[in-house]
């Protein structure tokens, strides 16, 4: 039955080559921890992706309860945390996943750096990877405000002061992020929500797509 469905689609769309591009490739010995245990350093990139998937899924469920306005944001998080079945687990996954993903992306960056894996012909993939790192930090920064507790509010105020200190464009940058040159308030929360849930994930997906296509195209770097 499944084979028939596959054949029906394949006859029309010729999906077998796509499938081959995604999954049908060899894993060289030097990256396989089954052969060399030290090759576990090659896991960090995959684990980063794994935690990113956790972040996306848990984040989607969080938006079912979260209300991005300053009157209800904190109340909705508290309600989710204390009243909703498994709400504490889902929020916990998103909260701790944010930290774990930073750890994993950091370790992955160090692995690639110290192995010199960014050298020709993989310069562009390194550039995309560093951009992914920045997007991840941006997601961390914007997500921190959303519970609208004291920690969130005051840390964001500090972050916006840092943005403001940038020469020439600082004031405009702060206004762009906060929605107002002075006030950190309702507009700020709405903007950070939009950035956290729409803008940065869009950038994240595009960059991740580029990252993976380049890996498949270039293969993993050879042994040292």
């Amino acid at each position: 039955m499944l084979q028939k469905m596959y054949d029906w689609i394949d006859e029309r769309l010729d999906i077998t080559p796509i499938w081959r591009d995604i999954a049908d490739h060899e894993v060289p010995e030097h990256v396989n921890p089954a052969h060399h245990f030290s090759a576990f350093v090659y896991c960090f990139g995959g684990l980063t992706f794994f935690v990113t998937v956790i972040q996306v899924l848990s984040g989607m469920f969080l938006t079912m309860y979260y209300v991005p306005d300053i009157v209800n944001a904190w109340e909705s998080v508290k309600y989710l945390q204390t009243q909703v079945a498994h709400g504490q687990i889902v929020r916990g996954m998103h909260h701790w996943g944010a930290s774990v993903v930073i750890v994993m992306i950091f370790l992955h960056t160090l692995r690639v750096f110290f192995q010199g894996a960014y050298k020709k012909p993989r310069e562009l993939n390194w550039i995309v990877g560093v951009l992914l790192f920045f997007v991840m930090l941006g997601l961390g920064f914007t997500g921190y405000l959303l519970p609208w507790d004291n920690k969130a509010f005051f840390a964001t105020q500090v972050g916006l002061e840092i943005a403001e200190s940038v020469p020439f464009i600082g004031g405009d940058l702060k206004t762009l992020l906060a929605g107002d040159p002075e006030i950190v308030g309702a507009k700020t929360l709405a903007r950070f929500f939009a950035i956290h849930v729409f803008f940065l994930p869009a950038a994240l997906f595009a960059l991740m797509g580029a990252h993976f296509i380049m890996i498949r195209r270039q293969g993993i770097s050879g042994p040292l």
Partner: peptide, 17 residues
Amino acid sequence: FLCLVAGAPSPLEQKAD
């Protein structure tokens, strides 16, 4: 990861003032 999540509930501070 789930042990971490279960063992350490994510913190929430008092509402922003």
